[in-house]
Structures are given as structure tokens and as C-alpha cells.
Design a protein around this nucleic acid. Structure first.
Length: 938
DNA sequence: CGACTCATTA
DNA sequence: AATACAATGAGTCG
């Protein structure tokens, strides 16, 4: 992408846009905000909503217009006087067009607009996935091979000739290198990028189409056609339909010729992008000089007045011209989208990297530098042929062109259009394609599709935009083999692709279809139907209408085995016929068991349409006799049934509160529909307990299986009870939940108190231990007093910051209390007597722990500090503190069995003054205390 | 005859 | 287990 940007900023020879960059940025940003979430939906809603913001947006462009006006002597002066809205053909339902028109003024520059994306680096194709692949392949040997392969590969690309000592080895290595698995992740990513690209292109066309409504553009163009042509286009009521139609076509031809003479093609337009080859060199910037510059509306106007630009621009302006003179015109674009299928497919035609790169560099100039006399060895043959084909095609079409003198600017001529125009023939209400630049044809829809192998242009999505931004997919009008070929390059072929495409175009759909829409739909449908049955096996693959038996999956059958098309050749002169069936007759099949899992039951008396393949049992006798195989197959294969052989499974009903069960005492509830009549599913974890408490009959609901390892265990989710008990059970559940919450709260409180006690004890013990002299030396001491001071301070700070201690007094209480003890300096048995007696064990533990701490008081301090960062309020951290801290057994016991209240009693006297205070602590402080006490064990 | 497409193979 | 990729050979079209 970075490359792309760099490219964009590269100044190109022709008219450079005077657009200040910040405008770009601002525009893009504002667009982004609404654009991101759901690309298309938002695109539209933004467009519609921006209407409201219209005036404000209009302001900005004004400035721009001024400068533009002052610098350019535009012939659009009269138009300028008018308000844009009035000058543009002001179609009543111009929601989209107008909005885009308005808003596009604001975000003038548009990177993707004129400059096609050339190459996209498929980063995934690089080392990472390769490495993975190689690793997966695995043993150490491969590494060597890999390297060798790389070397040779490099040599190959550099010198074109490699003299390797061992041919066999070379082959092997290259194979290994070549063989690069395309992961499913990779595929998905490609598809996503493809989709994104489609959306971007759609938007691009949408904007260009909106520009075609530009008042000034139209005003300038309107003056071009001589009155004679125009008068021919005025419908004559005396003509019959045929005459009128002919007149219209003729008029279009004249306009096309006129346009061809006026408009000068000076740049290259969009062409088909390719996935970047990992080992291909980066393209030189100069390679892009011939391309269209990125455009904003001003540039577009400029192009309209100077009548220069790429063929794309030419077609767009031609569209504007038609609209300007009152002809209903569509801007059609064949989206040149990055293919998703296989990267290799695109690059296959051009094999050797050297040659590839040349093609790469000059995507459009093959005509200029064709290959007829190129003294290159075999490898270049492929691309050469292509280009030559291109050339031939181009020339032929040139020859076909009716009376247009081909422009001398042949360099920029492409054989097939990316943009063209459809004009509505009022006589038939039919759309007439006009391609004024590439094929120079009018009403020749079958001439616009480039050959399928063309590297520069492929017709995959042809989308036609009307002046009110209603857009329609008209690919089928132009594709010769839509079902057999074109479709395979479209999202429709991917899973959910049909829906996706429909959704992508939804924003451009017309609210209420017009007559001409229906006419067109019918025509397109007819065209598709007329496509006929493919003649080769390849085209049957993924064909939406026909199927070959060899292509159906293992879980599919062709049920009514209707040979719709009887013939199909396998090889030419010795034909092997294969029957053809309808895709509609293909059904997925499943075993009876699988159907049951889906809540369906095989109807009585239905015979399996197919039998599953026998599982590969361990027996692998080398000479598998035919009969043995047959036997095995018949034995092992499970019967498979199609959906229409099944019916909704109805469980045996609940009778008098008695819930039916399966052999395991459960009830199968794989789908909601499997709830037995008269029963209710209560999907609560504790439902079984509740039902037991209530005392009604219930059955555990098995909603699936979890396969861990090879052992599948039933997943139970709640229970099924009779309908009439539902409320009772739910009430019981409520009560249980309530009780549980209470219990948890109590447990939490108890735990908090327990930890406090521990903490306090710890301090006390520390104090005592510090007082002991060992052989006259005091050794490093924990300065309890200081620690407490510090801690107190920290807590106060935290309280300021977080504010989760409601009462300051409460907060400071424990430390101050402890200080008291410290200050007394004597360890009074009676004082501690309140809680010490039943805590002998703890006492020992504490002592040990403190011993540890004493050895690195540094750590002690840092522990305190780090604890400060914990946010006690957060549940996770609390529980984390509990589970990871001290004994560990505590953690488990805590939830189930709250620690007994006696502790609390113990504490009440000396430590915490009120219950309320304790509660406050429970939430805020426990984890702190917990960490403090427990953290040191580590 | 050459270009090009399709099917097969590993 | 199944599909995809790349090379190769055969057949067809113009």
C-alpha cells in the first residue's frame, strides 16, 4: 500500500491537480468517520444525510471554485452563474447523485480515483507461510533442498539459463519451491481483499458517475455536437418504432464519431491489477507516467474543457455529454478487480519473470511494442502471444469500426474498454452500449468483452450507473459465457457471495423498478438462459445450472437422475459421453443419525439414495479383491438420505408431567424444535436441582456433544420439564440464584475479614520477631512502623485518586490500630487472645513467611508498590488474588463453603469496629490485603 | 501451421 | 482426505 501512495504522489506529466493536499486529507478523514463501519450501508446513508449538511459543505468548494475560475478560462462561464443544482439536469429523485455531487466537491482529491491499483503485495505469500509450509513438510532434508532451490531459482531469473550439474535434482528442487500451499486463511484474505476492492471500485464509479452530472462539465460539452446530429435525435412522432430506433442508433454513431475526433486520449486508464509477485522487482515510478492522474472534480472539469485524458475519462465525459443533450445515459464500468481465486491464474500467462516484469511495466503498451520480431527464446512466447492476440483483436476491432479514423495516439489505445456508456433507446426502452474509444462500437454488446486470458482487462463485474446513481449489474449483457466462465471470477462463487453482492449493490438499487428495468431484467435473464450447456468438463465445475456426476461431492446426490443434456465429450475423436444433470437436482445427503442431530427424522419407508464410503478400516490387504471391496462397501456404508426424505422430528410427548427420555435417561435436544410437545426447555445450569426441589419429573437436555480427544461426551444444558411446571421451576431457580448471590456476598465478606485478620497478625508477628536478638545482633529489621506509615499514606493517596474508600476513618483504622500495638512494644497475650487461640497453625505459617520477607525487605517494599496498581474494585483481580494467593486450597473452598463466621466474631472486637465498615472493606480492600499477606509466599 | 485451450498427472 | 498448483501432452480452431 505504501507503494501505492508513493505512486500517487508522484507528479505526472499531464495536468497536475492544483488541489492542496490538506483538502484531500480533510475530506478523506471526514469521509472515513462514517465510512468505516459498514462500507456500503454507510456510504449511502452518508450520502443521503449529507444532504442536510449541504449548505455548509457547499461553502468550502466555493473557495476552490474561485481560484479555479480565476486561473482557468473555462467555457463554462454561463454554467457557473447558475446554481449547480439547477444546471445539472435536476432530476427529481436525484438523491444520490446530487449528494455525491455536493459532497465530492469537498473531498476533491481521491487517490483511488484515477490511478488504478497496480499491484498488491500479498504479504502472506512471503516467508512466514512458506516457512510454515516447509516446516509442516518437515524433516531436516528439506532445508538443504530449499536453499538449493532458492539459489537456482535466483539464477534462473537472472540469467534465464541455468546449467545445473544434476538435472534430476534441479527439477526436484524447483518443484519443491513451486509447490506452495495456499492456506485457507490465505484464501479468505484474498477474498476479503477482493471484496474490498470491489467496493472501492464501485464507489469510484459512483463518483465519476456523479461528476458526469456536473453542470459545468455538461455545459461545456453540450456545445460540441453540431445541431444536425442533435436534431436527428429529437424523437419524431411520425416514425414507427423501427425507424425511431434506427435513427437513434445512427445518431449515437455520429456522436461517437464526433467524440472520437474531439477527444484526445493522452493517458492510460484503469487496468486489471495483479497480485504482486514476491520475487518481482518493484516497479519504477516512470512506469506510471502514462497513467491517468488522480482526479478531483476540478480536474474532471478541466478534462472536459481540454478534451483530453484517458479513455476512461473519455467515456465518462461522453456520458456527461449524452446527459447534457438530454439522452438518458448510463456510465458503465467493468470493474477491474483483483482476482481472488488463485494468484497463479493471473500470472500463469506470463511466466518468466523478466518478461513478466516488462508486461508489468507497460500494461497497455503492448501494441506499441509488440512482439512479432522479438529474438527471444521460448519462454517469452507466452506473453508475446498474448500481446499479439491483443493486438490482433484491437486491430480487428479497429477495422470493424464504422468509419472512424483511428487516432494516431495509438499508444494509449486499448483494445477493450473499461468504461463505456449505455444510452437508453427510447423507441425500445433498451439500453444501447456505446464504446467510443476502444472498439468504437454502438449497440454491439458482444464486442466489448476482452478475451478471457487478457492480462490487462477482464470483464467480471460490469456495473452501469444511471444519472440518479441507480446502478445495476449488467455483466450478463456483455459476458459471452457468464455461467460457465465469468461467474467463477465473481464473489458469487464464494460462500455467501450472492448475498454479498446483492448487499453491495443494494444502496444503488432503484426504489420502485421502472418498466425499462423489467425489460432489461428480462433481456438479461434471456441472455443468460441462452448461454447453453458447456462443452467441456472444466466449465461444468461450479456451474450454477448444470452438473456432472464427477463434480458432485461425497455428501451429495443427484436425485431424480434426469439427464438434462445427454452428451458431453471427454476427449475429442474418441468421444466418451457423460451425462449432464441439473444442479437443482443435487441434494446434500446425510446419514439418518446426522439428520436426527439436526432435528429431522427419515420418513418411514424411505430408502437411502446413497451409501457412505466405507471407512478405511485398519485392514489394508495389498491385493484388495473386488468382491471383498464390494462386500465391505455394502457392509460399512451407512445409508444417506436427502432432505426431502426427512421430516421434522417430533419427540414423544410429555404425558401427565412425565418427560420421555432416551436410553441414557436424557432427552435429545439438538435443536429447539426437538422439545417434546407439552414440554419446556429450561436452559439453566441449576435447572435440574430446581426441578428436583420442586419435585417434578424432568430430563436433562442434551444439546450436543463435545469431542475432546476421541471421546465424545454429551453436553447437557438445563432440563426439560412439563409445561405446567415451568413457572414453578423458574421460581425455584430464582430463589436459588438469590440465595447464591447472598452466599457469595457473605463469603466475600468473610474472606475479606479473614485476610484482614491475617494481615494484622502478620504485622504483629513481624513486630515480635524483629524484637528478637540473635547472638547479640539485631540483623536487618522490618520497620513495621515505617511500613505502616507508608502504607497508610499510599492508601490515602489511592483513596484520593480512586475514591473507593467511603470513610477515611475506616481506612486508616487497621494500620493505626496496629501502630498502637507496636508502640506498646510488648506482646500481650491477652490482647491477641481474641483470635490467636484458634490460629496456631496460621501463626506458624506467618512466622515462616515473615522470615522470608525479612531476607529481602526490598522486595517487601516493591510488593507493596506493585500492589498499589491493582484496582481492587475489579472482580477479576479480586478473584485472581484469591486463587493465586497463599494456600490455594482456600481458593477452592472459598466459593463453595464460605469461611465460617467465627472469624468475623473474632475480629469484631479488636479490629474492625462496625459491620458496615467491614463491608466497605470487603469490596475495596480485600484484594489488597490478600496480596499483601499471600504474595510473599513466592 | 501455429496459437490456444483443455485434461491429466503427481 | 481433499484440493490446488504447475507442467505436459493432445486436440481444435482459424
Amino acid at each position: 500500500m505504501a507503494g501505492g501512495r508513493g505512486r500517487l504522489h508522484k507528479p505526472t506529466g499531464a495536468a497536475t491537480s492544483a488541489t492542496p493536499k490538506r483538502t484531500t486529507r480533510r475530506g478523506a478523514a471526514s469521509q472515513d468517520a462514517t465510512w468505516v463501519p459498514d462500507v456500503f450501508h454507510d456510504l449511502l446513508s452518508e450520502a443521503t444525510s449529507s444532504k442536510a449538511a449541504g449548505p455548509e459543505e457547499d461553502r468550502k468548494p466555493l473557495k476552490k471554485r474561485k481560484t479555479a475560475l480565476s486561473t482557468r478560462p473555462i467555457p463554462a462561464k454561463p454554467a457557473d452563474g447558475r446554481h449547480p443544482a439547477t444546471s445539472s439536469k435536476a432530476t427529481p429523485p436525484r438523491t444520490l447523485a446530487e449528494d455525491a455531487f455536493v459532497s465530492s466537491d469537498k473531498e476533491d482529491d481521491e487517490g483511488s480515483d484515477a490511478r488504478p491499483i497496480q499491484t498488491i503485495i500479498d504479504s502472506d505469500e512471503s516467508d512466514e507461510s512458506d516457512l510454515e509450509w516447509e516446516d509442516a513438510l518437515g524433516e531436516g532434508d528439506i532445508d538443504e533442498d530449499e536453499n538449493a532451490g532458492d539459489e537456482e531459482e535466483a539464477e534462473l531469473s537472472d540469467l534465464s539459463i541455468t546449467i545445473a550439474g544434476d538435472k534430476g535434482k534441479e527439477k526436484e528442487t524447483t518443484k519443491k519451491v513451486r509447490r506452495r500451499g495456499i492456506t485457507s486463511v490465505d484464501k479468505k484474505r484474498r477474498l476479503d481483499i477482493h471484496k474490498m476492492h470491489v467496493l472501492c471500485l464501485l464507489y469510484h464509479v459512483h463518483r465519476r458517475n456523479a461528476w458526469c452530472n456536473d453542470g459545468r462539465v455538461q455545459a461545456g460539452l453540450r456545445k460540441l455536437p453540431p445541431p444536425k446530429i442533435l436534431s436527428n435525435l429529437v424523437p419524431n412522432p411520425e416514425f414507427n418504432q423501427y425507424q425511431a430506433s434506427k435513427r437513434f442508433i445512427d445518431g449515437m454513431n455520429e456522436l461517437k464519431i464526433m467524440w472520437g475526433n474531439k477527444f484526445k486520449v493522452t493517458a492510460l486508464g484503469i487496468h486489471k491489477p495483479r497480485w504482486h509477485d514476491v520475487d518481482a522487482e518493484a516497479q519504477a515510478f516512470t512506469d506510471f507516467d502514462d497513467l491517468d492522474i488522480p482526479m478531483d472534480r476540478q480536474d474532471f472539469r478541466k478534462a472536459a474543457s481540454s478534451l483530453q485524458g484517458s479513455q476512461d475519462i473519455g467515456a465518462q465525459l461522453f456520458c456527461a455529454l449524452l446527459r447534457a443533450i438530454g439522452v438518458e445515459a448510463r456510465l458503465v464500468c467493468s470493474l477491474q478487480v483483483l482476482p481472488f481465486a488463485s494468484a497463479a491464474q493471473a500470472s500463469t500467462p506470463s511466466k518468466p519473470s523478466s518478461e513478466k516484469s516488462t508486461i508489468h511495466l507497460d500494461p497497455y503498451n503492448n501494441i506499441e511494442a509488440p512482439s512479432p520480431s522479438k529474438p527471444k527464446p521460448k519462454p517469452p512466447a507466452r506473453p508475446k502471444r498474448l500481446s499479439r492476440l491483443e493486438k490482433i483483436m484491437g486491430e480487428r476491432n479497429l477495422a470493424l469500426s464504422s468509419g472512424v479514423a483511428p487516432r494516431q495516439k495509438k499508444k494509449y489505445h486499448t483494445a477493450y474498454p473499461v468504461y463505456w456508456v449505455e444510452a437508453l433507446n427510447p423507441a425500445h426502452q433498451k439500453w444501447v452500449p456505446i464504446d467510443p474509444h476502444s472498439t468504437f462500437t454502438v449497440d454491439k454488446s458482444d464486442k466489448l468483452e476482452p478475451p478471457l486470458n487478457s492480462a490487462q482487462n477482464s470483464l467480471v463485474y460490469a456495473v452501469a450507473f444511471e444519472d440518479d446513481s441507480v446502478a445495476k449489474d449488467v455483466t450478463r449483457r456483455y459476458a459471452k459465457a457468464y455461467n460457465a466462465k465469468t461467474r467463477k471470477f465473481r464473489v458469487e462463487c464464494a460462500e455467501g457471495g450472492v448475498k454479498w453482492w446483492r448487499r453491495a449493490l443494494k444502496v444503488f438499487r432503484r426504489g420502485a423498478p421502472l418498466d425499462r428495468d423489467q425489460v432489461e431484467d428480462a433481456a438479461l435473464a434471456r441472455k443468460e438462459a441462452a448461454e447453453g450447456i458447456p462443452k467441456n468438463v472444466q466449465d461444468f465445475k461450479d456451474h450454477p445450472v448444470y452438473v456432472l456426476e464427477r463434480h458432485i461431492k461425497h455428501n451429495e446426490v443427484i436425485h431424480p437422475l434426469h439427464q438434462v443434456g445427454k452428451v458431453n465429450v471427454s476427449s475429442a475423436m474418441n468421444p466418451k459421453m457423460e451425462p449432464i444433470y441439473r444442479r437443482g437436482d443435487v441434494h446434500v445427503v446425510r446419514s439418518a443419525d446426522k439428520w436426527y442431530r439436526l432435528g429431522r427424522d427419515v420418513k418411514a419407508g424411505e430408502q437411502p439414495l446413497k451409501y457412505a464410503k466405507p471407512k478405511k478400516n485398519a485392514r489394508r490387504s495389498l491385493p484388495p479383491d473386488a468382491d471383498v471391496d464390494m462386500d465391505e462397501q455394502e457392509e460399512v456404508g451407512a445409508g444417506l438420505y436427502a432432505p426431502f426424505q426427512t421430516e421434522l422430528y417430533v419427540a414423544p410427548p410429555v404425558i401427565r408431567g412425565r418427560v420421555p427420555r432416551n436410553a441414557f435417561g436424557n432427552l435429545d435436544l439438538y435443536v429447539p424444535s426437538m422439545v417434546p410437545p407439552g414440554g419446556v426447555h429450561v436452559p439453566h445450569k441449576l435447572a435440574s436441582k430446581a426441578a428436583r426441589i420442586v419435585g417434578v419429573d424432568y430430563a436433562d437436555a442434551v444439546t450436543g456433544f463435545s469431542f475432546k480427544g476421541r471421546h465424545g461426551t454429551a453436553v447437557v444444558q438445563g432440563v426439560v420439564v412439563a409445561q405446567e411446571y415451568k413457572e414453578a421451576v423458574e421460581a425455584a431457580l430464582d430463589a436459588m440464584e438469590h440465595a447464591q448471590v447472598e452466599a457469595e456476598n457473605a463469603a466475600r465478606t468473610a474472606e475479606a475479614l479473614r485476610l484482614w485478620r491475617k494481615f494484622y497478625l502478620g504485622l504483629k508477628i513481624a513486630q515480635r520477631v524483629n524484637a528478637i536478638e540473635i547472638e547479640g545482633e539485631k540483623g536487618p529489621q522490618i520497620n513495621v512502623h515505617e511500613e505502616l506509615e507508608r502504607q497508610d499514606k499510599l492508601m490515602t493517596e489511592q483513596q484520593m485518586a480512586g475514591g473507593f474508600f467511603p470513610d477515611e476513618g475506616t481506612v486508616t483504622e487497621p494500620p493505626s490500630r496496629a501502630r498502637e500495638h507496636y508502640e506498646t512494644s510488648t506482646y500481650d497475650e491477652d490482647d491477641g487472645g481474641g483470635f490467636l487461640p484458634d490460629l496456631e497453625d496460621d501463626d506458624n505459617q506467618e512466622t515462616r513467611k515473615l522470615g522470608l520477607i525479612r531476607q529481602d525487605s526490598e522486595h517487601f517494599g516493591s510488593t507493596l508498590l506493585s500492589q498499589q496498581q491493582l484496582r481492587p474494585r475489579q472482580e477479576e483481580e479480586q478473584s485472581g488474588g484469591f486463587t493465586t494467593e497463599d494456600d490455594g486450597e482456600d481458593a477452592g473452598g472459598f466459593i463453595r463453603e464460605p469461611s465460617p463466621p467465627p472469624h468475623q466474631d473474632d475480629m469484631q472486637g479488636g479490629f474492625v469496629q462496625t459491620d458496615a465498615a467491614a463491608d466497605d472493606f470487603a469490596g475495596g480492600y480485600e484484594s489488597y490485603a490478600g496480596q499483601y499477606c499471600g504474595g510473599r509466599t513466592e
